[in-house]
Amino acid sequence: MKTLILTASALAFSAGFAMADTIRMGTEGAYPPYNFIDDKGEVAGFEREVGDELCKRAELTCEWVTNEWDSIIPNLLSGNYDTIIAGMSITDERMETIDFTQNYFPPAASAYMALSAEADLMGVVAAQTGTIQADYVAKSGATLLEFATLDDTVAAVKNGEADAVFADKDALAPFVTDGGEFVWSGDDVPLGGGIGVGLRKSDTELKDKLNAAITSMKEDGSINALITKYFGEEAKTF
């Protein structure tokens, strides 16, 4: 075991200082179409394409890493990866611990999904732990039921544990269009300041590079093209 560590570190060490500019991109891998693990076992989705393009423009080598949503901020802070690119909305609360680039996805609507359109939205509402939607439900006066993943929240509505689920409308959309079992309920709610790349506060250099790359992608319309590709024609663009 000890030798394993030693060999590992020796090899890692000799592997070189040359490519110090490798950026490890942390994502959840369970939030289609933003980010998910495709059938080849690789990270895919809207954020994979945006991230790869950002790295290309900022001339960085990028490596994708998946991490549970629950511990995605602590692991960024302890340096296990350098960015969070996981559908994370820019909020004041998160800004207290981490920093964000400018948004690469405009402020999007969140929506309630239930088994019937007349569901009791002030009853029990499921949401994913640590999301802005969970905050919103808690403040709305409904009973909040938290789950670790989006899939668990949807399952809770299906088996009657919760009256409705509240999440990003784009993430819930496939359940409504594919299944036929679920319907939208109530009005859409605009939340958050858009989605940005999360960074350590001390990483100002990386922040500037990524901001410049996002600006250039906004200017030449390539971000809009990707949004339309993954979220449909009616999705909000820049």
């Binding site: 394993l4 570190s9 090899l11 110090a20």
Partner: peptide
């Protein structure tokens, strides 16, 4: 400030080493 910052050369394994080393 909640952050743990060492220079790139001190990372274990290095950010640039292949994923297999991170897993090992």
């Amino acid at each position: 400030n909640n952050e743990f910052n060492v220079c790139a050369a001190a990372k274990l394994p290095l950010s640039s080493s292949p994923q297999i080393w991170h897993e090992a």
